[in-house]
Design a protein around this nucleic acid. Structure first.
Lengths: 236, 236
DNA sequence: TTATTGTTGACAATAAAATAACAGGAGTGT
DNA sequence: ACACTCCTGTTATTTTATTGTCAACAATAA
């Protein structure tokens, strides 16, 4: 593929969205689309769409637009979705299990091969056919099986150490759901999913829009709900 | 609170992260911190930290730095975390259940009051004490109970309609896990969590770092794993 | 006291991202 | 085949975000 100039993160973050919309168009048997039409659908300026795509090559044709199927497949290649990825889940709690049960990952080529946990009640079980192993076995597993991505869904007290171990044993990507910022070698790639952070930004916006002028104390009284003091525990 | 100049989205997205770090400092009984020290911990420039915080007021003191507890509480107020939020989950599948089971939400004041689904096997059950109702009852519920946020974890075929209904019935915020971009009135706030998109950007980066020059076909052969054609089904 | 160091808040400079403008090739209709 | 429209790829402009700098002031030490 091409490996010339550096692509900006903003562009990379938009790629999956293009991919999703093009997939939708493909399902609707739409064979061609112009940046202007796509712009209307996606709420992005046509200019940005063209500029984004041109980072990776000229996929369109003047006077015609973009061929949907061709562009879809090109973006698939750019994202690296034309191969299989082997993944493991570390932490078999709520979120870990939910991800294992999410069948669409497999359809896209993201295969969860194993789950690791410390809980004796989980170890030995299978979740949708995927076995749960003791974390003690993780080193052996990772060293003997290809693991592209480790999905970290464990308490933050353990996340940092586990991430470092996995990095040491050769795992290249970490999809991190634990509530902490990982410190890993620079050749290891981390993508954070901080669900609570995401919810908090939503709450900020709700407050800004609906309660910004208002006295907060009044608002409490209105709801009749006193705020309980928070004592933070270990969190997943 | 203050409602003068518009705060940039980039700043708002960083706020929860400041809040998290300050919470950590508080737990470590650190009472004061300078932007420089925080900069080192968070990998953000000290300049940006000061500028971010000064969007909301001067919380620091020259020659001293910031009082951790004071700043923590100020950010809490800014984010609107000093009150309770009533939430419902729409879609009782994997992710919906995982979120209900995530006990830390409640500790922070985010209370999930009800789950709605269409699956008869789920309806009537309780998940960690939270009842699962038929979606038919959702309108009545929303109209008679305060709902700040609806958590949407349903297939995308249904998500758009449900979101519109909820907006019509007065729900102000949508935390959207379904694989689609919602079209809602502009006074309704949506925060998207597209997990698959997040994973795809990680895969892009892995490919860029490790396989960018390489011929992809070769790579397939190396793994011995042919790519199966994907036929997209309904996804949650 | 008085000097010295540390640190903010404000603002200036730089960098990054988004949008707009446009030249020119490709399609379309006559 | 010719004119005309559509639409890309690319360059220019504007907007937004980040970083660097410094005066003013607080804390601390002499």
């Amino acid at each position: 593929m091409d490996s010339e100039k550096k692509i900006s993160p903003a562009v990379i973050n938009r790629l999956p969205r293009y991919y999703r919309y093009l997939g939708d168009l493909l399902e609707s048997d739409i064979t061609r689309i112009s940046s202007k039409e796509l712009s209307a659908k996606m709420n992005i300026t046509a200019s940005q769409i063209r500029q984004d795509l041109n980072n990776f090559g000229g996929f369109g044709q003047q006077g015609y637009g973009y061929n949907v199927e061709y562009l879809y497949n090109e973006i698939k290649k750019i994202l690296g979705l034309d191969r299989l990825y082997n993944m493991i889940v570390v932490g078999g709690g709520n979120i870990g299990q939910a991800l294992v049960n999410y069948t669409n990952f497999e359809k896209r080529g993201f295969v969860i091969k194993a789950v690791f946990d410390i809980n004796p009640r989980l170890i030995g079980m299978t979740i949708r056919g995927v076995e749960v192993y003791d974390v003690d076995q993780m080193e052996a597993y990772v060293k003997n099986n290809p693991v592209d991505v480790a999905i970290l869904t464990l308490p933050r007290s353990q996340a940092v150490k586990v991430a470092n171990d996995l990095a040491k044993w050769g795992v290249k990507g970490m999809w991190n759901f634990s509530h902490v910022d990982l410190q890993v070698p620079e050749d290891v790639l981390v993508e954070n999913v901080h669900l609570t952070d995401s919810l908090m930004t939503l709450l900020y916006k709700i407050n800004e829009m609906y309660y910004s002028g208002e006295d907060m104390h009044e608002h409490h009284l209105k709801d009749g709900l006193p705020m309980k003091p928070l004592k933070e525990n270990e969190e997943e």
